[in-house]
Amino acid sequence: MPPEPKTCASCGRRIEWRKKWERSWDDVRYCSDACRRRKVTDVDRALEASILDLLDDRAAGKTICPSEAARAVAASRGLEGDDAWRELMEPARRAARRLVAAGDVEITQGGSVVDPSTAKGAIRVRRTR
Rank of each mutant, 00 (worst) to 15 (best):
A96F: 03
R93C: 10
A101Y: 01
R127V: 08
E4I: 05
S67D: 12
W17H: 13
L79D: 08
A46L: 13
A60C: 00
E80G: 06
R45C: 05
M1K: 10
K120D: 14
A95G: 05
S24F: 07
G103T: 12
V28Y: 02
D82W: 03
D82L: 08
K62N: 10
T63N: 04
R14D: 09
E87T: 10
E80Q: 10
I15E: 02
V105Q: 01
T118W: 10
S67Q: 11
R13V: 10
G12N: 07
S24D: 14
K19H: 12
I123E: 08
R93G: 11
P3D: 09
I64T: 02
A96R: 02
S10A: 15
I64L: 12
R29M: 08
R124V: 01
R94E: 13
A59P: 12
A84Q: 08
R97G: 01
S117Y: 06
K62D: 13
V113W: 00
R126M: 08
T118A: 14
L99Y: 06
A72R: 14
T108K: 09
W17F: 15
V43P: 01
R18S: 13
R13A: 08
M89K: 07
G121W: 09
W21H: 15
S24A: 13
Y30D: 01
D82M: 00
R37L: 11
A49C: 05
K20N: 11
C8P: 07
R23S: 14
A75K: 15
G78M: 10
V105N: 03
R97E: 03
T108S: 12
S32M: 11
C8Y: 05
C11P: 04
A46M: 13
E16C: 01
G121Q: 05
L54S: 09
E106K: 04
I15P: 02
S76V: 03
A74I: 00
K120S: 15
C31A: 06
D26M: 06
A9G: 09
A74L: 02
Q109K: 15
R94N: 09
P2M: 03
R14P: 03
E87K: 13
